[in-house]
Every structure is written in C-alpha cells, then in structure tokens.
Design a protein around this nucleic acid. Structure first.
Lengths: 234, 234
DNA sequence: CGCCCTGTTGATACGATTCAAATATCGTGG
DNA sequence: CCACGATATTTGAATCGTATCAACAGGGCG
C-alpha cells in the first residue's frame, strides 16, 4: 500500500463477525470465541486503480483478502517489462507465502477500484494451528491460488491472441448476468496474455468491429459470450 | 498407477524413519512417536516412462511424493491435445487437492524413470491437524507447487520458442555439475512450452547444430549453459 | 523384413511483432 | 474552463517467427 494513501484508503477496522461475505472469506471458520483472541485489528481499505498493495521481495506482515474489485500480481522481467502472473478478485487471498516465512512473491497492484481487508499474518498463523476450520480454509485458498495460476497457463498463455482475448473477456464477465465487464489498459491486457500492447489493442478493436463486444462507456464492455465462445472451438 | 503394473512397480513399504531424503520430504516433521500412529503403510514404487500415476477427475486416496525422476501433470484440451501444466521432480508432492476434498486436478504421467512414495491422504489429514511441523511442510509444498506453476507461466510460456527451449534445458540441467540432462519426446516438449512438435524439434536440432547442446546418447544432452543463458538476455 | 512411431526437414501461409505515426484521452496549471 | 503536454490507444506497413501441411529418414518391434 502506498504509505501516502494509506490513511485515505483506510475505511475502518473490519467487523469480521458481521462481514457480509464472511462465508466466503478466510475467517469463515472462526467462532465468536476465536475472534476474542485476535489482538491486532483487521483493517479495511478502499483502493483506486494503480494503487500498490505490496512489492515483490518485501517482507511484510499482512495477508490481504479481496472483498471486491480486481488486483494484478505482477513480476518484473530483467528488461523492465512486466508479466502478470494472475489476477485476484472477490474472496481471493494473497500473501500466503508469508505464512511459511517467505517475502512477497509478487508485486500487487490494483487494476480496478478494490476493497480489501488486511490480516496480520502472525495472528493467522497462531489461530490456524488451533482452529481446524481456518486451517481448511487456508489450504483451500492455497489450492485456489494454484488453480488460478494454472488457469493463467491454460487459458491466458495458450492459443492465438484472438482466443486469449476472448478467454479473458469471458473470465472478466464471470457469470455476470448482463454480460458486462470492465477492461483495463491495453498494456496490462498484453502483460496478462503474453502478447504485445499493439496486438491487444488490435484484437479488442477487431472484436468491437465484429460486434463481439460493445463499448458503452470507456473500457466498459458488453460481451457477446456465445460469439466469443465460438472463437474457442476453432 | 496402472493397475496392471502396480505389482511390478511396487518396491516395498517405505521405511520413512530412515528415508534418505527425509529432510526433504513431507514427513520431515514427524517424530518417532508420530510414526507409530500411521496405520496404513507408505508404499514405494518404481515407475517407467509412460506409466500413469493418476487421472484427472479421479477421486483418489493417495498423495504422492517424488523421490527421483520426472513426472508431468497434464490436462487434456477439448481437441484431444494435451497441455503440460507443470513438471514434478525430487521432493515434490502432488495430489494435495485431495486434502480439501477435491478430485485429482490433472493426469500425472511419468516422463523419466521415477521412484515415488504413496501416502494415504486421510492419515496425512489426521496427522497434520496435530503436528505443527507437518502442517508447515504441507503449506510449503503448496507454495512450492504454486511457485512451479508460476515458473511455467514466466519461463515456459513466455517469449520466443528458442528462449523457451533454452529455459527448459537450463531447468532440466538444474545445477547438475556435468550440465547433462535427459530430454523427453518432442511432443511433450511442445506440450510443455506451448509450441508445436515441429517447432520443438526444429529448435532442439538447431541448438545441436549451433553446439549449444551435444547429444551423447539418445535424448541425453550436455548443455552449454552460458550459451543458452545468452539467448535469454536478447 | 516391413510397419509404425518419432523425429527431422522443407515450403508456404498466416499471425504476431516491430517500428513508426496519427489520434484520442487524461490530468494539470494557467 | 480551456489549453497544453503527457500518456494511452489505435492504425499502418514491413518483417520475422511460428504453424501448417507434407514428405522423408531412422529406429524399434512384431
């Protein structure tokens, strides 16, 4: 988190007991009694596009659980360009590597307005040793992170550029009943899909011309999912 | 594991207390006393190239820890072609998804002669709840699997074909002092790197002509690591 | 011995990158 | 509020790399 914005981004101590998405988050398994033993607060933040959550190599003390929005985990290549390893969205947890004493393995940057909770890793460690349900939740998060990474391999790093863009749009729409999604900058599209910014731009533009997507506001798209799906069977 | 070969592949009940790679394996944290409570045996197997360990979607009861050799985790695409998600080698654990009640997420196939131990998942579950060290080891394995998946993204699915092949060879040599590695079939090379079989073949052949690698036996290569490394800075 | 499977090589077409330029968008200060 | 510069996006043209389709060589095995 940018230190300068930390204060403005802060939206309060989280009331985990009454968390609206509690059944989806890490603390799903914590009883009222367990909460009493949490000594350091869980803080909530609201972040804007471009905000930095943490930096690769930093030895932090916090895990983050995404309440809503979109975050990219990136790694920077020797030549300065970035590669997006995977994306995080609602109920994803990141920073798990701290649990085994490692530094953050990526740089985490906000792609779309995001709300998240910041969890002190030492409390999680302590609680997870005694609480079987939290332990289960942690393993499930790890497995989900793994699934997401594998999704990046099979869906975002495989096939022609057109197919990758189509898979990305389908993923972004994510069962949204109105088939709407918000897209991010073309450079990030390229870094996610392993293609150049120009190819990302060209492909999105082509989809617009073909009517596969309609842009109602800037970077707000309504997608013709069946049409995009058709691209994937070819 | 192919049922037909299960018997021949079996090489005995593992003596975990005296395991040669115990400090590297999952059971590193188990005390003598803990071992006494393991009711189902840990079996050891020696498998040949092409042997099937488990199949995606199967609801198995065993984790596997690789003692030596090389295993591919693959997922089959709608059109029948395969994509290699990641490779497993010594001390890697696979099948962790069983810990949270999921079926195997991939098909696991032996690429090079492999020795592995088969661990009953319910025993691991039970032990890990009481044994903090095993719990730590499990998290570390999960994190390593995640790191391997991310390695597949950044190293094997990024850049030109020549660079991908170079990164693969460097990975296969893996600090081997004599710079030797065994390669697998070109189709698998393609499936790992997201390129066609022909491009895989062409690129390896090109490396041979350029002297970046020398093939002393069939698919046994000695690699000029600095030369390959140089390809990556371009 | 001949067949099948794998690996290699060739020719061509297609797609993505690259380099370059024009256009659009955003934020800032006047 | 507008003008300006900085930044992001789009488009164009040429080049390069990879996929594709096809043919052939070699090795292992029945």
């Amino acid at each position: 988190m940018k230190n300068v914005t930390l204060k403005e981004a802060w939206t309060g101590h989280a009331d985990c007991r009454n968390c609206a998405i509690r059944q989806g988050v890490l603390f799903a398994g914590l009883s009222q009694a367990d909460f009493e033993t949490v000594h350091r607060p869980v803080d909530q933040y609201r972040l804007r596009e471009g905000d930095l959550i943490y930096r690769e190599g930093d030895g932090g003390q916090y895990l983050y659980t995404i309440r809503g929005g979109l975050v990219k985990l990136v790694r920077y290549l020797p030549d300065g360009t970035q590669r997006i390893i995977r994306l995080l969205r609602s109920t994803d947890v990141t920073g798990l590597e701290l649990m085994i004493g490692q530094a953050y393995g990526h740089t985490a940057v906000v792609l779309q307005p995001t709300e998240l909770c910041r969890l002190p890793v030492d409390e999680i460690k302590r609680l997870s040793l005694a609480n079987a349900r939290l332990y289960q939740e942690l393993m499930a998060r790890w497995q989900r992170a793994l699934g997401n990474a594998e999704h990046s391999i099979t869906q975002f790093a495989t096939g022609a550029a057109r197919q990758r863009v189509a898979r990305m749009l389908i993923w972004l729409v994510n069962e949204n009943p109105d088939n709407r999604c918000h897209l991010f900058g073309r450079e990030d599209v390229g870094a996610l899909l392993g293609i150049t910014t120009e190819t990302a731009s060209r492909t999105v533009a082509e989809f617009k011309r073909l009517g596969y997507v309609t842009e109602d506001r800037a970077n707000s798209f309504v997608c013709d999912i069946p049409a995009l799906q058709r691209l994937l069977d070819e």
